[in-house]
Design a protein around this nucleic acid. Structure first.
Length: 522
RNA sequence: GGCAGGGUAGCUCAGCUGGUUAGAGCACGGCACUCAUAAUGCCGGGGUCGCGGGUUCGAGUCCCGCCCCUGCUACCA
């Protein structure tokens, strides 16, 4: 069982490029593991509690539940549009999640009663925000967001979780499991954090309205609401059905895909919570970077201008968008989005290099072989491709981390090789000489073998276009049903009947998007 | 401030434990070809390898100093 998750998205706005990058990347990983024949469970979801949600709802004159219902629909519609293949979609407002969170807390109370304790929390409280403010949120003694209001010094009693106890455990776990957190730079940051020592964290709040009731009241009798850490992070666990004993058939997760900004929560707080509950830890956490907007172009954050996700997806369709994001933004760091780069990549990589290679190969099989792929044996081209696919594999399976951009680059090495091979062999010349029929057939068979491999390996990245190529090649069944790795023998397309179709990636006809950028929130 | 990682062709980057004329892709110029979405292949122009010292027969690659950029330095989900 390969159980992987993405961070649950906070339901206070619609999905943007950043959300999409994470889901697309995780989807490629999930689909890759399915190609390897593994039993995959892929979880995505929404984080729907908290002050900001209830405030946003209040501002729009509706209930928090109605707001999150609407936002969740927007997210799910987008993931469907992007062909995200999640097996499950969890929402923290679901009754099952609520029950799971409370069960987890109870379990910690039972196993490690000393890990929860009550303490008066004191701090500057902003009535406008309905929340306590930290130093960084206070300027001149006033809340940055509500400078007209006066901050109140408020004390309330709530539950704390003894995170400080788990520093040694976490250090040891990191030492024993070098690949627990990647990439390396994030790992080093967390190790530095652990060396500083940990402080305890809030587990409940009294003034929090929109959330899961904390299972135990405090001594002053005030009902408590579960604070974010114990509400949001356990979604990965509650999604398995916990505390139903069957949860163990899926837990622990093999991989949490998260943004680099929340690695700390996933690599310190979450493991400590699980440890306290006596539950196994996830095998790995991968922290991806962010999509930035290219400076010096038409877009800039300072101008309050941003790229609309829907517009980017519609530009060349979901598959091309997925390709661009995962090729251009290294999955272990940041990368910029710009329409110019998007157009360049689309034209050079997808339309010219790859789409056209498929077009010319399929056209020649039709013209010279009546559409039936001639027999052929693996040759030097296959051997060279194999080396590229070995790099693809090591970039995808976590061996060196999750370097999706490198995997794509490896496939494009084979595309480059294919174009070079066609020109060198010049099958259109061979076709004019009946004596060279054998050579012609070998060349065309080689090309189709290459394309078939490319279709299979690009399936995780461009599921729809890969399937369309597979269909045009005359491959059996679905490209996504193919298996690579140990169980998969070399593909042999002999006898397939190719079907010329529309270009996989038609050349752009329209000019780049007009300056219709929307002035949004910065 | 502290810790960490970076500054290499117009753009995005590769250059492992120091060693022949510093590489790739895109973009740009020329040539070739015609199967193909006027696509592709080949050749080429283009870089004081952030700045200044030092070690060495020899440094983008090591050492010192400086400049600039990014991330982290815990209750925002």
């Amino acid at each position: 069982m390969f159980y992987l998750t993405t961070a649950i998205d906070y339901a206070n706005g619609d999905p943007h490029l950043g959300h999409a990058l994470e889901k697309i990347g995780a989807d490629a990983i999930a689909r890759y593991h399915r190609l390897r024949g593994e039993d995959v469970h892929f979880l995505i979801g929404m984080d729907e509690h908290g002050q900001k949600v209830s405030q946003a709802a209040g501002a729009e004159g509706e209930t928090p539940q109605r707001l999150v219902d609407r936002v969740a629909e927007h997210f799910q519609a987008m993931w469907e549009r992007l062909a995200i293949s999640n097996d499950q979609f969890i929402r923290t407002t679901a009754p099952e999640h609520r029950a799971g969170v409370q069960a987890l807390i109870q379990r910690i109370f039972e196993r490690e009663p000393d890990d929860f304790y009550q303490k008066a929390y004191a701090g500057w409280y902003c009535v406008g925000c309905e929340a306590f403010k930290t130093e960084s949120e206070i300027e001149n003694g006033r809340c940055v967001l509500h400078p007209t209001r006066t901050l109140e010094w408020v004390e309330e009693r709530n539950w704390f979780f003894r995170l400080s106890r788990y520093g040694d455990f976490l250090r040891a776990h990191f030492a024993d499991h070098p690949s627990f957190l990647g990439p390396e730079s994030r790992r080093n940051e967390i190790l530095a954090l652990l060396d500083q020592g940990l402080e305890d964290i809030s587990a409940s709040r009294a003034r929090l309205g929109w959330g899961i009731p904390f299972p135990r009241p405090t001594a002053d009798g005030e009902p408590q609401t579960t604070y974010v850490w114990f509400d949001a992070l356990p979604n990965y666990l509650t999604a398995t059905g916990f505390p139903d004993p069957a949860f163990a058939s899926r837990w622990p997760a093999q991989l949490h895909v998260v943004g680099k900004d929340i690695t700390r929560f996933h690599c310190v707080i979450w493991p400590a919570m699980l440890r306290a509950a006596g539950l196994p830890l996830p095998a790995r956490v991968w922290a991806h970077g962010f999509v930035t907007l290219a400076g010096g172009e038409r877009f800039s954050k300072s101008a309050g201008v941003r790229v609309e996700l829907a517009e980017a997806v519609e530009r060349y369709g979901p598959d091309a968008f997925r390709y661009f994001m995962l090729r251009e933004v290294p999955f272990d760091g940041d990368g910029a989005f710009s329409w110019e780069r998007f157009d360049e990549r689309y034209t050079a990589d997808l339309a010219n290099a790859f789409g056209n290679l498929a077009s010319r190969a399929i056209a020649m099989v039709e013209r010279y072989c009546g559409g039936e792929v001639p027999p052929g044996r693996p040759n030097a081209v296959d051997a060279a491709d194999a080396a590229d696919y070995e790099r693809y594999r090591s970039a995808m399976d976590g061996e060196r981390g999750y370097l999706l951009h490198e995997a794509l680059a490896s496939v494009w090495q084979t595309v480059r090789r294919g174009n070079e091979y066609v020109d060198r062999q010049a099958p259109w010349k061979l076709a004019k000489d009946p004596a060279r029929r054998g050579e012609l057939e070998e060349v065309l068979a080689t090309l189709v073998r290459q394309l078939a491999r490319q279709a299979v390996h690009l399936g995780p990245f461009m599921p729809t276009r890969a399937e369309e190529l597979w269909r045009q090649l005359g491959g059996p069944g679905s490209v996504h049903a193919q298996r690579i790795g140990a169980q998969g023998g070399p593909l042999d397309p002999t006898g397939w009947r190719v079907v010329r179709g529309d270009p996989l990636f038609p050349k752009p006809t329209a000019a780049p998007p007009s300056p219709a950028w929307a002035a949004g929130e910065p």
